[in-house]
Design a protein around this nucleic acid. Structure first.
Length: 185
DNA sequence: CGGGTTTGACCAGCGC
DNA sequence: GCGCTGGTCAAACCCG
């Protein structure tokens, strides 16, 4: 089911083609920041670098527009209910997956999340945690999973788009962005 | 007491 | 159809 397209391979810093990635990294997050309600997946204390970004659809929107316009992803979001679909077709919501190198799983992205589930996943000794945004009417979900092959890497998958402003200062976010650029260059 | 977490049960989709 | 797997629910529990 996990059919993400990797935009930023984890080995960007060691890759010979890292410069091509850094250009993406430099424009992508700033747009996310300026949107302010796009989404985030970064935390403040222990992150040492953002390793990758994955997405299962609409990869070209990043490449072509630079600014990830969330509207282009949000079309089907609020219709896919909480998993219980009655007669609806399977509406696959676009999702983004970040890879971050982190000691902790919980990334402080400025939004408030409530954990609603945890599952053991195949081929991974670490469980996957499921979170939902606690803001009323906001249906954004995220999954947090640590890689078993490299337990220093945490994959955070976002699903949906926040319908409200960020609830906390995003200065942490900026910290991470700086780290990202350092990491990628 | 209110809000968040834990955890087993349940359900749906998919491959065989 | 059956079993596996991912995703969600919800009751119990925890904590400030």
């Amino acid at each position: 089911m996990e059919n993400y397209t990797i935009l930023f391979p984890p080995q960007a810093s060691s890759s010979s083609s890292s410069s091509s990635y850094s250009s993406h990294l430099s424009h992508l997050p700033s747009n996310m920041l300026s949107n302010n309600q796009a989404f985030g997946s970064l935390h403040h204390n222990n992150s040492r670098g953002l390793l990758g970004l994955q997405e299962d659809v609409k990869v070209s929107s990043f490449e072509a527009h630079g600014a990830p316009q969330m509207e282009s992803f949000g079309g089907a979001e609020n219709e896919a209910k909480t998993g219980k679909k009655k007669s609806e077709k399977k509406i696959r919501r676009p999702r983004f997956a970040f890879q971050t190198r982190s000691q902790v799983d919980i990334l402080d992205d400025g939004y408030r999340w409530r954990k609603y589930g945890q599952k053991a996943v195949k081929n991974n000794k670490f469980p996957r945690s499921y979170y939902r945004c606690t803001h009323q009417g906001c249906n954004v979900k995220k999954q947090v999973q640590r890689l078993s092959k490299d337990e220093g890497i945490v994959v955070t998958t976002y699903e949906g788009m926040h319908t409200h402003p960020i609830e906390k200062s995003n200065e942490n976010f900026e910290h991470i962005l700086n780290q990202m650029q350092i990491y990628s260059s």
